[in-house]
Design a protein around this nucleic acid. Sequence first.
RNA 1: GGAGAGCUGGCUGAGUGGUUGAAAGCGCUUCCCUGCUAAGGAAGUAUACGGGGUUAACCUGUAUCGAGGGUUCGAAUCCCUCGCUCUCCGCCA
Length: 428
Amino acid sequence: MIDINLLRDDVIGVANLLKKRGFDLDTEAFSELEASRKKIQVRTQELQEIRNENSKKIGMEKAKGSNTDSLMKLVSETSSELKALEVELSELQEKINDFLLLIPNIPHPSVPDGITDEDNIVVRECGTKKIFDFKVSDHVDVGKFLGLDFDLGTKLSGSRFVVMRGGIAKLHRAISQFMLDIQVNEHGYEECYTPFLVNTESLIGTGQLPKFAEDLFVTKRGNDESDLYLIPTGEVPLTNLVSNSIQEEQHLPLKFTALTPCFRSEAGSYGKDTRGMIRQHQFEKVEMVQISHPDNSYEVLDEMVKHAENILSKLNLPYRVVELCKGDMGFGAAKTYDLEVWIPSQNMYREISSVSNCESFQARRMKARFKDSDKKNTLLHTLNGSGLAVGRTLVAILENNQREDGSVTIPKVLSVYMDGEKILKLPK
RNA sequence: GGAGAGCUGGCUGAGUGGUUGAAAGCGCUUCCCUGCUAAGGAAGUAUACGGGGUUAACCUGUAUCGAGGGUUCGAAUCCCUCGCUCUCCGCCA
C-alpha cells in the first residue's frame, strides 16, 4: 500500500497521480475518515492517560491502606466511556486500512502516460524472426503429434488444462531446469523451494488480496473451509520470505528464484486465448525476486530485465522489451517492463515475462524492513519478474523452431537436458 | 487425530493482580581509565502509532510480554478461543 502520510499531506495530488493509471481515489471519503480518526484517537488516548494515572493512584493508596472507593468509581466511569471510544477507533482504523489496501501503487515518474497496452513503448527488439518457406502451424497443431494433449487435460480437469506426454513433457521439463540453472549459476539467485498453498496474509502482502480474490483458486481442507490459496505466481511465496522481518543492510540485495506452478482462475478472460496453452489455469514459471535497498532498486530492475532477456537470447527466440504505460501496469507496480516473445502463427509478440519494481508498496504491507545506516528501520523495495514462464516458452519454441516435416529443433542450450537430442521427432 | 510441555526485548532469562515497557546477565553504541594484550568504570540501547513543534534535533502521550476476546478500578500475571513450537503415541508419502 501507499504511505498514508502522502494522503494526509496531499490527497488531491495523490489522486491526480492515480487517475493516470485509471484509478479514482475517493478523496472525500478519505478526508472524512481521517478527520474522525484524529478526533477519536486523541480523545481515546486522553482518557487512557487519565485511567492509567488514577489506577496507579489506587494502587498507591491501597498500599497505604486508605479508602479508594471514590477513586475506583471515577475510573470505572472513565473506563465505560473509554470502551465505546476504543471500539469506534478500532473500527475506523480498520476502515482506513481497508481503504488503503485497495489503492494501487503510484507510478514512477518515468512511466509513460497511457491507458491501454497500445500506449506501451517498445524499448528494443532483439533476435531475428525466422523466415519460413512453408505454412507455419500454431503450437497446438505442432504439438498434436508430439505429445501435447488438450483433450486429456479437459477430461481430467476441464478447459484451460493440458497434458504433456513423451518428448514434449521432457522438453517442458528441460526448459524449466535450464532457466533455473541460469538464474542460479549465472545470475546469482538463491534457489528456493516454497509452499504452493499460501495464507491470506501472504496474498495481502504482495497485493493479490483483498482486491483480486476472483483471480485465485482457494482450497478446502477435507470438508472444512480453509484460508489457503493456490499461488498465482511464485512472487507470492518468494517475496513474503521477508515479511515481518528486519534485514541487515549489508546482505542486500536478497535474490531469490524458484520454479513453481502457478494457478489462475482467469475469471475475467472468458473467450480470450481459449486455444492452446497461452492461457492456462495451471502453468510453471521460474520466478526472480529481489529485495533491494530503496536507493538502487531501479538499477536492480534493469538488471532483472537483462536476466530475463538472457534466457530468451540463449534460447534464440526473437523478442522485444516493452515499457508499460501507467494504465497497463499491475496493481502493485511502480514501473514494469514486459518481455514479449515472437509467436509466428499469430504474427505478433506475446508476453512471456513481466518485471516490476514495487518499491515499498509490498514492503509496507508485509512490514519488510532493514536497519539503515542511522539504525532506523526502513522499508525495503521489492522487485519481481518472470525468468520465464515455462509454458509460454514451450509454445514459442514449438512455433519458432518448427520444421516442415512436423519435427521441432531443440535449442542448443537445451540439448544437455534432453540427453543430447537435437530434434524433437514425430513418433513412428 | 490423542496426551503433555511451552511461547516475555537482538539473545539468555526473572516476573502469578498495582508507579513493570518489563529485574539480571549477555550483546551492541558512546564516553572514561589503562603506554601493548587482558581487564575495569559511566551512560545509553525495542517497535508501531498519535498530538505538539522553526515537521529537524526534540517534547509528550498511547499501544504492544504468540494472536484475539473476557474478568477487574487496574492484567505479562486470572479465565476462554485460536495459532505456533517441542516431546510421546496414532496415521501417512
